[in-house]
Every structure is written in C-alpha cells, then in structure tokens.
Computed example of a mutant assay.
Amino acid sequence: MDFPVNEIRDGQKQLAPHINFDEEYHFFYDESNNPRKLYTRETDFNTSITGSFVLGGIVDNGIVFNFEELWNSLQLQKNTKELKFKHLASGDFINCLKSRKLNIFLKFIDDEDILVHLSCINLLYYSIVDIVDSALMNRKELFELGPQFIAELKDIMHQVLRENLDETRALFFKYNYPNISNEDIPEFIKEIINITNYKNRNIKNQKSLKILKETLDFSGDKQKMPFLGGEKNNMLIEEFYQFYIKQIYMFKNSYHTFDNEDAIQKIIGKFRLIDGKRILENYTFKDSQSDIMIQLSDIIVALTSKYKIFINNHSEELIRLEFEKLSDLQRDNLKLYTKIISKSDKYNPGFFHHITGITEVNRMLTLNNLIENK
C-alpha cells in the first residue's frame, strides 16, 4: 500500500515551525501499555483505560556512553542477560521512586546527557475526541474561537466521561460506539448530556461545559455526527501502528530501531512510505537482548507509563499530598526523571508527542512546580 509521506509531514511541520524534524538522529524504541486493541465489553473494557500507551526511548545523537560502568554499578545477578525495568524497580510510580537502582540509572542518563523521546497517548481521551470533533462539524462557527477553546471542550468531555467511567462504558457498549447508526445518534447524545448533568464537581470551566452540552444537543437534533459510524462495533482503538509510522516519516532523515513486535512489523511492512522518488527504509526491528539501547529504552518507557498512570488518576490536590509524603530518595528520583525529560525537550521539542487533555497537562505542570520549588 503506497503512503506518500511528504504532504502530511509538511502539514505537521507548518503547525510546529520551531521544531527541527530534519536533523539526523538514531531513535531506539520500546513500548508500554499497548493493549493491541481497545474495545468495550458488556461489563467492562478489555483493558484498563485510565493509562496511556507509551512509545519511546533513547535518542543517539553521537555521544558515546559507558554502558559497562552502568551495568557494573547496578550489580545485577550474573545470569542477567538483558537490562529490564523489573531489575530496577517494581510497584506503582510512587513505589518505584523508592528504588536506589533506579536512582543509579537516572543519574547515569543525566550525567551522560543521554536524550530521550516519548509519544504518550491517553487511551480514553484518544477514544472520545471524535465525539467533540463531530459535534463541532455541526457548529463550524465555533472553530473561530480558536484551538485553545476546542482543546478545552475536548478536555471537559474527557473529564466528564472519566469521572463517570462505568456509565460511559455502558453507554458505549449500548450504542456500539464508535459505530453509531444515524437513528441512534439522538438517544446517544441525550445520554451523554445526562452524564454531563451529573455533579462533576471537578469541572472548573462551567461556561465551556454549557457550550459543550449545547453543541452536543444541536448535533442530536440534526441526527448527524460525521466522524462516528462506519467503524467496527465497540472497537475504540483497533491499531497503534500509526504512531510508529509517524515517527518514521516525521524524522525521515533519522534511523529508527524498534524492539521486536511481530504484529506491528507485519502491518508496517504492508506500507510503502514514499518520500518523493524514494521509499523510506530508515527503520528496523531488533531483539532487545542484542541492543543495549533498546534495553535502556525499556526502562525510560516503563517508568513513563507508571508516571502517566499516576498523573491520570490523581487530581492536583492529591498530587500535592503525595508529593509532601515523598522521601529524599523519592524526590531525588522524581527530580532526575523530570530533568531528563526537560533537557531532551529543550534539545528538540519534536522528541515529544502527547495526545491528552489540558487537565492532564496541568497536573504534570503542578508536579513540576512542586519539584522546582523544593
């Protein structure tokens, strides 16, 4: 299947003219929290939907690293064949921060100025944005209020459905979301509005919530939701391959080494990524045992996945309470982790790709501010 990349790549570059996508790097990847498919069942989702799919790892920009020093410092068992996150830490994000071996690893990454890259996709947010986009297509004048306003509507939609997850899941299953028939749109919209009418105490922007409800109601009356329908019943996310492909073509002058993932490899292999007169062949899949860079990527990605679960499931108030309880070691690990992210972001913001709501971003900023002020 032919996939010309330059038109979509140029469009993405125009949205972020300050980012250098043309430099040559070597990206190494691992992934975490990839359910392969995400769908609703009668009594639950097939997997936890309150976390984020994370794809990312280490960026090699020519710096030589002393891996043997790291390996020796970690004092791993002699029969250890490859470095994995489980060798350094376990438990949720807060418990992982108690690990001295994690501290050794993060200090090594920081001291060696090793760069990292991350794509993080909030599973629930990614699953529901088509509801808002569809509603806005019926009220196109709202686009004139700008991207920040649209982002606020999507964030509020996500907050409401996240706070009422059982009702959301039941609603999705009942109407085969996202494969909703035109006949069912009015009732589907009516039930979503019912959910938005719950207390929803954490919704601060009541004005935007009111506009969201009015926009949804208007779409229900028109019996039209352009981006819903024509899908598989109850299949929220069928594939994640597009996030791999995006890295390949956005950084088309770079090389990309992914951890072996047979299903993804087969799908990507079906595409011919056409760059003008050439076919992009700037990627490979390797066994992590044979590549220390993929092993380092495993640790960065696994820790980030736990961090995202923590952020997704803690309000700003709870984040402050948890931070106050941290030990010196936990705070040091947290500070090192955020420093590594910040250093890489300053080097090239294109190393980071997030699909999530404003609320989650604000929670991350809250935690960053707590770290900086201590």
Rank of each mutant, 00 (worst) to 15 (best):
N122E: 07
K78N: 15
K86M: 11
S73K: 15
T47Y: 14
V132K: 01
N95H: 15
T47M: 12
Y177I: 02
N72P: 11
W71E: 12
P147C: 08
F172K: 03
K78C: 12
F143H: 09
N122M: 01
L142W: 01
D155C: 09
D166N: 15
Q75M: 14
N122A: 10
L74G: 09
Y175P: 00
L74D: 08
E69P: 08
N61K: 12
F65P: 07
D166V: 15
K140Y: 03
C96H: 06
V132P: 03
Y175V: 01
F105S: 02
N66P: 13
N66D: 15
F85M: 14
N138G: 06
D130W: 10
K140C: 06
D110C: 12
D44P: 15
I109A: 13
E152R: 12
F93L: 01
D113M: 14
H158K: 05
L74K: 07
S99C: 05
A151P: 07
R100E: 12
I94Q: 10
F67V: 04
K78S: 15
Y125L: 05
K107Q: 11
D60W: 03
L97A: 01
V64E: 14
D166P: 11
D130C: 09
M157S: 05
L171H: 12
P178K: 00
I63Y: 13
L171N: 08
L142I: 07
N176P: 00
K101F: 07
F65S: 13
Y125I: 05
V64I: 12
G91H: 03
L97Y: 02
E42Q: 14
D113P: 14
S99D: 02
M157R: 06
I156L: 02
D111S: 15
I128M: 03
E163N: 13
Y175A: 00
G56W: 07
S134A: 01
K84L: 11
L70V: 04
A170H: 13
C96W: 04
D133K: 10
Q77V: 10
G62T: 04
G91E: 04
L136K: 00
V116P: 03
L153S: 02
I131T: 05
L106I: 02
G51N: 11
S90I: 06
K84R: 12
I49F: 04
Y175S: 01
A135C: 09
F93Y: 05
A89N: 01
V132G: 03
K154Y: 02
E69D: 10
Y126D: 14
E82H: 12
E68V: 09
I63L: 15
L76M: 11
I94S: 04
I58F: 06
K101Q: 04
I114W: 02
I121M: 02
N72R: 14
K84C: 07
M157V: 00
S90E: 15
Y175L: 03
N164Y: 05
C120G: 08
N95R: 13
N176L: 04
T47A: 15
A89T: 05
D130I: 05
K81Y: 10
L83K: 09
S134T: 01
I156Y: 01
S48Y: 09
N122Q: 04
P178Q: 00
I109D: 08
G56D: 08
D110K: 12
L115D: 08
A151T: 09
V64T: 14
H87V: 01
D111G: 12
L115M: 08
E69W: 03
F108D: 11
D110W: 10
D44R: 14
K84T: 05
T43L: 13
L74E: 08
F93I: 01
